[in-house]
């Protein structure tokens, strides 16, 4: 029986953020580092819709760019929703406001998979093809994330204390990072650059089929997260409290871990490890809605994630300049002030 005023405030906030997200999505298609006038863009969109994309040469370049941006925007949208949601899951599970989606080492494990693929191939003298954003990188990244997930799930049945699990995840992440450094040391320059470019994060150059796979993983992960809203609320009061209500906390943890792997693992596989926004988005949602109840906070975080990541994408494209800033740089510059604000707010 929340007061009417609070409910109204929430509805207004949801509506505003949803509208802003839609606006950002449209904006991210219209703006980009290559300048295309709105009229050209619209005519290209309509003609390709009308003719099934078989228009004459004048519109081909525009059509390609529009298609490219559409996929990029959808990717950014999916990544934002996934990382925001995953960040919230980790923050609630570990009762840690600074937990990020990769806290259990997902980005390191994914990175290890990718580096074995890119750098390992070069280190062993195997020639490289054009696999920079290819399916191979995504596959290697997913393999890393899923192997880690299996390990964490196996260990969490024995290390029932969340803090121990957290430390284990961080240590595994560190081991993976150490192995990656070793691979970097042993590999050729071009492979090194390819790996470094991967770590910078990108929503671009992902083929439609990959976007479809990403969409599938993200939707599944989001669905699983929504299904555990009640359990997340009880976890707010502590794992013992949840147990005292007769809840099987081991099963809940499993569901959360699987959802997190789908969300963070999926995004990392196709976009590279995008940091900072995963911590920041749940806090922005908490700040606007002032509600820790996941019934409100989870959808708010998902919506906010979409908006934030679309903004990151727009800024990273540096409209009309012909230059592109790496996604991780923009994400860091946007996310870090939020994190500092959290620490500042929590100071005694």
């Amino acid at each position: 029986m929340k007061s009417g005023a609070t409910n109204r405030r929430h509805s207004v906030a949801f509506a505003v953020i949803a509208l802003a997200a839609v606006a950002a999505f449209v904006c991210s298609i219209f703006v980009g580092s290559v300048f295309i006038s709105p009229s050209e863009l619209l005519s290209s969109l309509f003609s390709s819709l009308a003719n099934g994309g078989k228009e004459g040469s004048a519109n081909d370049v525009v059509a390609t760019i529009v298609n490219f941006r559409l996929l990029k925007s959808v990717t950014a949208l999916l990544a934002g929703m996934a990382l925001g949601c995953c960040g919230l899951l980790m923050q609630t599970l570990f009762k840690n406001p600074l937990a990020d989606p990769y806290i259990l080492g997902i980005s390191s494990a994914s990175g290890l998979g990718v580096s074995l693929y890119i750098l390992g191939a070069s280190a062993f003298g195997v020639g490289q093809g054009t696999f920079i954003h290819g399916f191979g990188v995504a596959g290697a990244s997913l393999a890393g994330a899923f192997l880690l997930a299996l390990l964490i799930i196996y260990v969490s049945r024995r290390l029932t204390d969340n803090l121990s699990l957290l430390i284990f995840g961080i240590m595994v992440g560190s081991v993976a990072s150490a192995l990656i450094t070793m691979l970097q040391y042993l590999s050729a320059d071009s492979a090194l650059k390819a790996y470094v470019l991967w770590t910078m994060g990108s929503f671009a150059a992902i083929p439609g089929s990959s976007v479809a796979i990403l969409a599938g993983m993200v939707v599944l992960g989001l669905l699983m997260s929504v299904l555990v809203i009640k359990d997340l609320n009880t976890l707010l009061l502590g794992e013992n409290y949840a147990k005292s209500l007769g809840i099987d906390t081991m099963r809940v943890k499993m569901k959360i871990l699987v959802a997190a792997t789908l969300l963070a693992g999926g995004v990392t596989a196709f976009c590279g490890p995008i940091g900072f926004v995963g911590i920041a988005i749940p806090h922005i949602a908490r700040f606007i809605f002032r509600n820790s109840n996941h019934r409100v906070l989870l959808p708010a975080t998902i919506l906010m994630g979409a908006l934030v990541m679309l903004l990151v994408d727009i800024i990273a494209s540096v409209p009309s300049s012909g230059v592109v800033i790496p996604v991780n740089t923009v994400a860091a510059l946007m996310g870090i002030p939020v994190i500092i604000a959290i620490i500042w707010k929590h100071r005694k």
């Binding site: 929340k2 707010l236 502590g238 409290y241 005292s244 820790s292 109840n293 906070l297």
Partner: peptide, 11 residues
């Protein structure tokens, strides 16, 4: 439980 943590933002 003996010492329940207060959660900010939870009514």
């Amino acid at each position: 439980p003996s010492r329940l943590e207060r959660v900010e933002g939870l009514s």
